[in-house]
Design a protein around this nucleic acid. Structure first.
Lengths: 230, 230
DNA sequence: GGAATATACGTCAGAAGGACGAGAACCTCG
DNA sequence: CGAGGTTCTCGTCCTTCTGACGTATATTCC
């Protein structure tokens, strides 16, 4: 069943790797495919680029359709293009992958037409349709690198967060523990990484944490290097 | 003259930003367009992706056609996809940009069918066709960043080079002088960045330099940070 | 009030790099 | 052949940054 060939303007799609953190675990947004090919298999959300929209707009539209998010309360950046000739059995379809980082949604996926979408821990996200396993792996590595050199970690957090919240982001994405005292020093010393909100967290136990908003900085200089092991 | 619409498999192209260093200046490979649109204007070399090849293969093929280079004596990496609806007046054409870094070719462009291609200093590469000004700007920034975190600078150099040759690469691409003594210490101290060839350069003037081949390392850890100024 | 806990701040040593001095190895020129 | 100039290589000092780890502070629970 190779017969299907989409019209020219439907040869390019965008696929989204949407990351969030829930219950101290990195989750990725997946859909269950309702049509062939790969019927019933999990896949990254995505869709074809429309005639009048550019790639970024297409990614934003898909993200809105799947999560209800819009405006600028998320991080969205292009990862790269994928175009193996046989990546889609329907024919020659290229896809441009986007990495999205969103905070843990209070009413997750509410008001969306994507009731088939669900958050899956990345550790359990295998066997995806198409080449989405590869795209997901590339996205995970890209996210880890971007935490080193940029301030995107704050995009995982809600508007108000503590330094410990931010540290959890790094620990979850990197998969390794970080010394709380050194991390605190680094975050506070980095100009415009976070700005104090003036509030304190109601303590469940222990000293209440000071709360912050994300600052205006985007680059981390000097970077927060994870010491890579083979 | 909007009538032209390429068949489905010709909606995606690859464009190359090929950098080299000649006479202590960063040069980019440009062609002069022989057909409309943008007839007679300079542009990045590129072409449509063929039915059976993937994106990387298409980029390699184009690079070979334009420079005669093949094998692995160059650096070739994807930059990203560009897809503004109006970027090509012929219709909806997406392009995937690739960054190539090659040594100064001894017999430049010999044996190629691209006699229309020429090396242009990046400082004079303006007014390109399509959105190639933007792609070139993105490529330049990407090259600068990659010099910080990877060992690609050696891809600008011939097989055998001196530490000073390598330093010139950084100075030319970054556009700022570097202290020769600190640079030398950094390069030598970084494991597998360069390996001694055992030879010395015949000195024109001054102490002859020891020569090196590029090493096996790809990442620079810790990175060679340029201190960005606003 | 004391124990437990989490946050905030401090200290010390080692790694890395910017600034700069100086020696080493070649050239040319007188 | 020696002096001076040039370039490459090595070394020193000092500052910044960070990993390791100690300690004070603010809250809840008992």
């Amino acid at each position: 069943m190779i017969g299907f060939m989409p019209p020219a303007h439907l040869v390019v799609a965008v696929d989204l790797v949407v990351f969030t953190i829930r219950a101290d675990q990195l989750h990725v947004l997946l859909i269950e495919r309702g049509n062939p090919p790969f019927h019933g298999k999990p896949a990254l959300p995505g869709g074809f680029v429309r005639d009048t929209e550019n790639l970024h707009a297409a990614a934003e539209r898909e993200l809105h359709e799947e999560t209800g998010l819009n405006g600028h309360d998320f991080h969205l950046q292009q990862l790269g293009a994928y175009g193996e000739p046989d990546r889609d059995p329907r024919g020659r379809i290229f896809t441009v992958a986007y990495l999205a980082i969103v905070p843990d949604l209070p009413a997750p996926l509410a008001g969306t037409d994507a009731s088939d979408a669900s958050w899956v821990p990345v550790t359990q996200a295998h066997g995806l349709a198409f080449d989405h396993d590869q795209i997901l792996a590339d996205a995970l590595e890209a996210a880890r690198v971007r935490l080193e050199y940029t301030t995107v970690a704050t995009s995982f957090c809600p508007s108000e967060f503590s330094v410990t919240d931010l540290r959890r982001v790094y620990e979850v994405v990197w998969g390794r523990p970080i010394d709380p005292r050194n991390f605190h020093r680094k975050v506070i010393a980095t100009e415009d990484f976070v700005v104090p909100s003036g509030n304190k967290r109601a303590a469940v136990v222990g000293r209440p944490a000071m709360l912050y908003h994300r600052g205006s900085a985007t680059r981390l200089n000097p970077p927060m290097l994870r010491h890579s092991e083979p």
